[in-house]
Amino acid sequence: MSWTKEEMAQRVAELFPKNVSVNLGIGLPSMVASFIKEEDGIMIHSENGVLGVSGKPKEEEVSPTLINAGKQTITIKAGASFFDSALSFGMIRGGHIDYCVLGAMEVDAEGNLANWMIPGKKVTGMGGAMDLVNGAKNVVIMMSHFTKTGEAKLLKKTNLPLTGMKCVHEIITELGHFRPNGESFDIIKLAPEVTEKDCALPN
């Protein structure tokens, strides 16, 4: 039985030691915020210019000028700070952010990541992802195991335009927790009743 999105988010949150800084990407990774415990002292960074992101606002707390990188309304916790985009990316590029969690189109056995365009079909742009994979100390991918049309996203070699080379450290999908090892992927943990065969990992 695969993990739910919430269980995936829980798995990702369990990777973080106490008192680290974490950048959460847009989409699925933003769900991780709900599984980070207040007492763990983790500071969530959002690249649009805030360190110390907290949970969702109550209706009366909503502020149009207080959003995360996914353009969702947020709140901040005590000790939070605001800054401009250059300082925000200085935190990332300067190596001051401990973990980043990103979505992906494909990841390959060498740890190469593709998540910003499919030539001729889809272009979202890289946003902050290229900076994050070069600057964050640990790069965690949180994604669905297969594409909507059923193709594997964990590959021997990706042919999509890269976001970064040899940059991925951990991968959490609904089927399990994996690490690229150069040839294929090490299985760290599988979801209940999931077999290695279900994961369609490259040989």
Binding site: K56, P57, K58, V62, Q72, T73
Partner: peptide
């Protein structure tokens, strides 16, 4: 304008 109004 707010793009994604997410509340509790």
């Amino acid at each position: 304008d707010i793009e994604f109004r997410v509340t509790q």
